[in-house]
């Protein structure tokens, strides 16, 4: 297993792998989005929510990705903190802005869905509040890294913060079970199977896979940028000697 994943922490092998994997994920994201959007806009209106049900095809994937990217950020921070892997630190740093955008989109599209359905842009409901906390963890992670001049110290402090923030991940996921929320309960992964109609479930899953592929492509591109940035810093240090 360790050998099979060696390319992920060897920068040379990672650069070779990501050079072809990033465009492949990008193309996959576009293809899946085209299919998901077509099925999403040919699906009938929901009997209760009308056309606003189409917001689900972009709101739910953004929310899932906001959580998933945070788990990746936490995992990479753990590898960076415990095993001092430079590439893991680059991966953590690269994941943060992507996760922040997905989480911000989940909050914004949720608000645009909530207004016509609940009559309010925002409620201090357990699910919404815990997702807002998730977004604040992303912002705090990026702000902490930017605030500390010594890059190694900043990376360690931010990694600890990222690990602390992992506590919020199950809270977001289970908030609709643990508390009485205005936000609906689990639908796709409900106990006893999905409660969503197939005509909505298929485009939702296609869009989710598209968002996942887009994250894969963007993450690889940003890690590549991080590797180049560190190479530039190393070359600059050699020239300054």
């Amino acid at each position: 297993m360790t050998q099979a994943l060696a390319f992920l922490y060897n920068p040379h092998r990672f650069m070779a792998f990501s050079a072809w994997a990033a465009p492949l994920f990008g193309a996959l994201a576009l293809g899946l989005a085209a299919a998901g959007l077509w099925l999403g806009f040919t699906a009938p209106e929901d009997y209760q929510q009308g056309d606003t049900v189409r917001i689900m095809f972009i709101h739910v994937p953004a929310a899932w990705l906001g959580l998933f990217v945070y788990v990746c950020l936490g995992g990479a921070s753990f590898l960076s903190l415990v095993f001092r892997q430079a590439l893991a630190d680059a991966a953590a740093r690269a994941a943060a802005p992507i996760g922040a955008v997905f989480t911000a989109l989940a909050l914004a599209t949720g608000s645009l869905w909530g207004k016509p359905m609940w009559g309010a842009w925002w409620v201090w409901d357990a699910r919404l509040t815990s997702v807002l906390v998730l977004f604040l963890f992303y912002l705090a992670y990026m702000a902490l890294r930017a605030a500390i001049d010594d890059e190694a110290k900043g990376a360690r402090a931010a990694a600890i913060l990222a690990l602390v923030g992992l506590v919020n991940v199950p809270v977001v996921h289970w908030s609709v079970e643990w508390w009485n929320t205005l936000h609906q309960g689990r639908t796709v992964f409900a106990a006893g199977g999905s409660r969503a109609a197939t005509v909505f479930l298929v485009p939702l899953l296609l869009m989710s896979l598209s968002y996942m592929s887009a994250f894969g492509a963007l993450w690889l591109v940003r890690i590549r940028g991080e590797v180049w940035r560190r190479r530039a810093a190393a070359a600059e240090a050699r020239l300054a000697r």
């Binding site: 972009i58 802005p97 955008v101 989109l105 599209t109 645009l112 207004k115 963007l218 591109v221 940028g225």
Partner: peptide, 27 residues
């Protein structure tokens, strides 16, 4: 509500793609 959601998502994801590519290219 529907088109603002899609417009916002397209703008944010498009911006993320452009900024990520520009970041990698610059460095």
């Amino acid at each position: 509500y529907v088109w603002m959601s899609y417009g916002l998502s397209a703008a944010a994801l498009g911006g993320l793609v452009v900024s990520s590519l520009a970041f990698a290219r610059r460095w």
